[in-house]
Amino acid sequence: MIANTLSRLLRRAFPGHNPLATFGDRIEGAVLALGVVVALLAVPVAASFGSEIYTTHESRVAAEQKSRTQVDAVLVADAPSMDGAASSEALIETTEAVATWRTPDGVEREGVVRAPYGAEAGTTLRIWIELTGEPTEPPMTNQGAASNAIFSALMLWGLVAGSMALLFGLVRFVCMRVRLRWWQLEWELTAPDWTGR
């Protein structure tokens, strides 16, 4: 099955000396071959791009791991219940609630944190804080940096390969329209001889 597909692809890309191959077939074949070559050449480019993204994120990972600390926060009031949430907010599993926490140097802070809907006052949560003591997002991890790099590389390659596929589809569409027009003109010339009209 794969061999048949590859054989068909090669015949389409390189019609060769096929007497039935038209100029449009040769244009389609050239664009198909160009698209495959460009998509293959884009693989190392995308890999290099992903590697650059990972290198950039490595310094961010190191900085965030040093500057962010996880501490216990205690809710000072009940978190809002799911009943009062708007339909768009209900898609998120947490809501804002007021809590207190201590920084690593012992200073007590109070502020708004993310808590589960309906969490009661006194509930202890683990939150991430910056050096200033303000709540923040969890630090990026090496796994997160690698995931971002792989996703970026795949997106770049997909964009290039998709562009080549779109180009081939457009050329094929134009060539098919030209073929159909030529066939129509040829039929108009030969139809009287066949039909007697």
Rank of each mutant, 00 (worst) to 15 (best):
M1Y: 12
I2F: 13
A3E: 12
T5C: 04
L6W: 07
R8W: 07
A13S: 14
P19Q: 10
P19K: 11
L20I: 02
D25C: 05
R26Y: 03
G35R: 03
G35I: 00
G50C: 02
S51L: 00
Y54T: 08
R60E: 07
A62M: 07
A62I: 10
A63W: 00
A63S: 05
K66V: 02
R68V: 04
T69E: 12
V71T: 06
D72F: 01
S81I: 13
S88L: 13
S88E: 15
S88K: 13
A90C: 13
L91N: 13
T94S: 14
V98S: 01
R102T: 09
T103K: 14
T103N: 13
R109D: 08
V112M: 08
R114Q: 15
E120R: 15
L125P: 06
W128E: 00
I129W: 02
T132A: 10
G133Q: 09
E134F: 07
E134K: 13
T136F: 01
E137P: 05
P139D: 10
M140I: 09
T141V: 01
Q143E: 01
G144F: 07
A145L: 08
A146Q: 06
A146W: 03
N148H: 06
I150S: 00
S152A: 14
L154W: 02
M155G: 07
L156W: 01
S163G: 12
M164G: 09
L170I: 07
L170R: 08
V171E: 00
R172F: 04
F173Y: 14
L189M: 15
T190R: 15
R197G: 14
